[in-house]
Design a protein around this nucleic acid. Structure first.
Lengths: 329, 329
DNA sequence: CTGTTAGCGCGTTCAG
DNA sequence: CTGAACGCGCTAACAG
């Protein structure tokens, strides 16, 4: 294995000089820079990131923290996009990423989790889909021991940024389009989970729309579950004009119920997952670029680790109409 | 951050003694073991795996190498199960895992990939779904620089194990059941990719069945794509008794085509993915426990890294009938 | 059975 | 602007 020592010898300079060139330090003459770079090329040198992490405290190692959904497997698509988006961007930036699941830290205190992450020389964390009930994670963030980027969670301080789309406005927009297209007056809203930030944001959006348009609104919690949404639709959809759901999966459940009841109601979803295509009908939904959001989170974390201040980063979305052939092609 | 040095001081022993206790080395008295363990408890010491990786050459760092399917997103479910199965088992065994995608190594030579992995102190790799065309990976395996476990690929040598189910027999069994239930005589087989080991194994299975039962068999390549399978079914299914597909996704495509043509033919799939539930019909399929397979791969790699010989590990599967309510509940 | 010593590969002062 | 020297936290010979 070729090490920095070999490069130094090959270039006829000291080890530390090589290190400086590699890490873009000032005070190195163009001349020696060139010499070093040539040696790096010739020896095909790849710096050992493990050694770098051990040596410097400000290493580029970060953790991805995901809430793996073992029940509704369809959601996996979103997590997978989060993972791939993050890993690819991290590699671009020369950062190392380690993936963890919430379940691994169940029953552990914030301090234990922190110690574990530190034992892995991890100083940056991206947390996906935290809810209010994830107390340990909230404490971890408050402790500010790590640089954190929270995806879909509104927390930010000096060491913490949040990255997400404007859930409220997106829900407002997609529901509005559905309502206007169909002239609906009373709507059934199938919300997500009780303590989820995302769910609450979307709920605010539909509430605002109902107020603006003077709509009758019934809200029920669907727990982001297809089955649950299906049952709610069976119970309440009949005497409503439209069904608005806080996720595509629930929209599919609702649509199935409607089909089984043999009645038609416009349904709208949220997320823009592929699964949508199999519902057999068209519906409006919000297209989120999960991989892109995740990549943005990595960049944000990179910035934080370079010393930037935490902030609230709101990304864009699109309202689209999905149908079978959109997916297949 | 509490280090091994603190533990040593706290226990009143030498650093190396602590190391020995932690790594279960022989020749340590029960007495000192207890002292050390108590110190570890009291200080809440978590060994720094990065330092361990740097110091010892036989570290527990491994890479997951996945072929991310950006076209047919439904397959993501399988990759996600691979990832989570591997990561959870790895943590149980105290190994660190880093996830990579094939796309990251495109255009790189086996040597470059090897150097990159070594620069990360990685000495074990799990490769998922390699095909014959992945020359670079084949070379990487042949070089035996790394301990490798190949999932769904029949390669094994001193440093390489393979882990998979018996594709041939599974395809034979599931197709046989479908054929027998329906008394089919002529079948359309929609195979996977041309140079895939998995595809070829399954193809052998259906060929053997056709021979054993004297069935008429037509084979077409569906590229594991729903759309492709759909078109094949449109073209050829009409004058066949049954459609057997090398994946669930293709089975769904075929089934849709049949529904649109308004004819019924029994269809059977392979994999047992959740998506199946949305096809609206029942069908036989092979249930693979992807997370379990992945966990087994990690254990196998662990064994290899401890010095075991590579081998061919064949796991079990089940033939099941999937229908809508199986999924929802 | 225990402690001493020498690195692993790199980042980082601090003299020169 | 360059290089020698030290240390990150740990493992692995080797003495004792």
């Amino acid at each position: 294995m070729v090490s920095i020592k070999d490069v130094a010898r090959h270039a006829g300079v000291a080890i530390s000089t090589v290190s400086k060139v590699l890490n873009n330090y000032p005070n190195v003459s163009e001349e020696t820079k060139r010499k070093v770079n040539r040696a790096v090329e010739e020896l095909d040198f790849v710096p050992n990131s493990v050694a770098a992490a051990l040596s410097s405290k400000q290493s580029g190692r970060m953790a991805l923290l995901l809430k793996l959904n073992t029940k509704t497997q369809a959601i996996d698509e979103i997590d997978m996009q989060y993972i791939s988006g993050a890993i690819c961007k991290a590699r671009e930036l020369g950062m190392d990423v380690v993936t963890f699941f919430y379940s691994m830290f169940e029953g552990k205190s914030a301090e234990e989790v922190a110690r574990y992450l530190l034992s892995q020389s991890i100083h940056g964390v991206i947390v996906y889909g935290m809810s209010k009930e994830d107390k340990v994670l909230h404490r971890l963030i408050e402790s500010q021991v790590f640089k954190v980027v929270a995806v879909d969670t509104p927390v930010f301080n000096r060491n913490t940024s949040s990255v997400w789309i404007d859930q409220e406005q997106a829900q407002y927009d997609v529901a509005r389009r559905t309502v206007e297209e169909n002239g609906s007056r009373s709507i059934l809203y199938i919300a997500g989970k009780k303590n989820g930030y995302v769910s609450e944001g979307r709920l605010k959006g539909i509430r605002r729309l109902a107020e603006d348009k003077g709509l009758k609104l019934m809200v029920r919690n669907g727990e982001f579950s297809e089955l649950c949404a299906r049952e709610i639709a069976f119970r309440y959809a009949k005497n409503k004009d439209a069904v608005v759901c806080a996720s595509d999966l629930m929209a599919i459940g609702a649509m199935r119920a409607l089909m089984e009841m043999d009645i038609f109601r416009p349904v709208c979803g949220f997320d823009g997952i592929t699964l949508m295509g199999y519902a057999g009908k068209q519906m409006n939904t919000v297209r989120q670029d999960f991989a892109g959001i995740s990549a943005a989170a990595v960049e944000e974390l990179y910035g934080l680790m370079e010393g930037a201040q935490g902030r609230n980063l709101v990304l864009g979305y699109r309202i689209i109409r999905m149908k079978y052939m959109d997916i297949i092609c």
